[in-house]
């Protein structure tokens, strides 16, 4: 059995001021998994993702990346990329420069970095927009640039924090299908936060349903990884059944919260 990419061993997060955002979490992420995190606001989804990205350090417990601490993350075979909720592009730079940014920061030689930008843009269907600036792009296109910037490092683990939340449903569905294809083709391990139950059902091979006060994993739901994520799947009875099950799990969270409030 291959080494887990990420392991959380009773890792928890309490912010200064004493707010416990995340109770101790046990999680093991295996290569090739596509994990969706869903749950109501304040249940610690983003905190969990930022712990995995090392943007937060755990208050207690332990985190492991490829079986070790974070120091070797970034080496070949241990690359991590993060897609934020907003595209977070540099407004003063063109699309190609934005996509090349992580390579420049990592010290990749300029020629090699330039050569890697075109395939990354082709992956997200933006080959024609390399010279444009973010202000000249639609919201969906900016998000695609953000994804291309994450893919250009050839990551082994991709983390996405509500990447398509600000987009209309049509654009969002298209990007979901593109992401499913990209992940399937590249065997890319992905963990993403979403507020959309249908997006979690469509993309994930495992859904973690989270609950608040304090943030914790309430339930895990596995989805057959061999299913082809396309329009036919979105319209299938199987998809509807998955959505129904996830909805029931979210309702449990909601009822538990209402009972606690009462």
């Amino acid at each position: 059995m291959s080494l887990p990419i990420v392991e959380m061993l009773a890792a928890e997060k309490t912010f200064p001021g004493g707010v416990q955002a995340l109770a101790p979490v046990e999680l093991s992420v295996r290569p090739g998994e596509l994990i969706g995190l869903i749950g109501p606001s304040g249940c610690g989804k983003s905190t969990l993702l930022k712990l995995i990205a090392n943007l937060h350090t755990p208050s207690a417990g332990e985190m492991r990346w490829w079986g070790e601490d974070f120091t070797r993350v970034g080496e070949a075979g241990r690359r991590l990329s993060f897609v934020f909720q907003d595209p977070t592009l540099m407004p003063w730079a063109d699309v190609a420069t934005n996509v090349r940014l992580p390579l420049d920061l990592d010290g990749i030689p300029r020629d090699e970095a330039r050569a890697r930008v075109a395939p990354a843009l082709a992956q997200v269907g933006l080959s024609h927009a390399a010279d444009r600036t973010p202000a000249q792009l639609s919201g969906g296109m900016r998000m695609r640039v953000s994804i291309a910037r994450a893919l250009v490092t050839r990551p082994d683990l991709l983390l996405m924090d509500e990447p398509f939340a600000a987009l209309d449903e049509f654009t969002r569905n298209r990007l979901d299908e593109d992401m499913a294809l990209l992940c399937a083709q590249g065997g890319l391990t992905t963990i993403f936060v979403t507020h959309s139950l249908t997006e979690a059902a469509f993309l994930s091979t495992r859904v973690l349903v989270m609950a608040p006060d304090p943030g914790r994993i309430h339930a895990e739901y596995a989805i057959d990884p061999t299913i082809v994520r396309d329009e036919a799947f979105r319209l299938s009875a199987e998809f509807a059944a998955i959505c129904r099950d996830l909805s029931a799990l979210l309702n449990e969270v909601s009822h538990a919260r209402a009972a606690a409030d009462a």
Binding site: L55, G74, L80, Q85, T88, M90, W92, L105
Partner: peptide, 26 residues
Amino acid sequence: VDPGLESFFRMHKASRLQMLWRLRIP
């Protein structure tokens, strides 16, 4: 500075000079 962009630079272990020249000044 856009906090997301700053986090992105930190994730890629950007130096102080890179942060200043490529992020803060623009």
